Simulated scan of single mutants.
Amino acid sequence: MIIVNCPMKRDYVTDLLEKHDQDGITFKKVAEQGMKLSFETNIEDEEKAAKVAKEAIKATEIGAVLYFQVSVG
């Protein structure tokens, strides 16, 4: 499971990650508590999944200015 802490644009981040399907890596939101979004991924290497999620968010038009953290949980 990966955790995305994001105080703003949570719906945007959720939509972005749930539509993401690069190199066969997918994400599905399983919980949201405050600014903490929890996602399941289909690969065993959660560190790689966290890196892919972070890169996907940063690659968007607002990713460079959006405050967020991605971690493995």
Rank of each mutant, 00 (worst) to 15 (best):
M1H: 04
M1Y: 03
I2V: 12
V4I: 15
V4K: 02
N5G: 01
C6T: 15
C6E: 02
P7I: 04
M8G: 00
M8A: 01
K9G: 02
K9D: 02
D11A: 08
D11V: 03
Y12F: 15
Y12Q: 13
T14K: 01
L16A: 07
K19L: 10
K19M: 12
K19A: 12
H20M: 14
H20P: 11
D21W: 00
D21E: 14
Q22A: 15
G24Y: 11
G24F: 13
G24W: 08
I25P: 08
T26D: 05
F27V: 05
K29P: 03
V30K: 07
A31H: 03
A31M: 07
E32T: 08
Q33H: 02
Q33K: 02
G34D: 02
G34T: 03
M35I: 02
K36I: 14
F39H: 04
T41I: 05
T41C: 09
N42V: 03
I43H: 15
E44P: 02
D45T: 01
E46V: 07
K48R: 11
A49Y: 03
A49N: 00
K51R: 10
K51H: 10
V52E: 03
V52H: 01
K54M: 13
K54V: 12
I57E: 09
I57T: 11
K58Y: 09
A59C: 11
A59M: 10
A59Q: 12
A59N: 06
T60I: 09
T60K: 11
I62K: 05
G63M: 08
G63W: 08
V65Y: 03
F68W: 02
V70C: 09
S71M: 06
V72E: 00
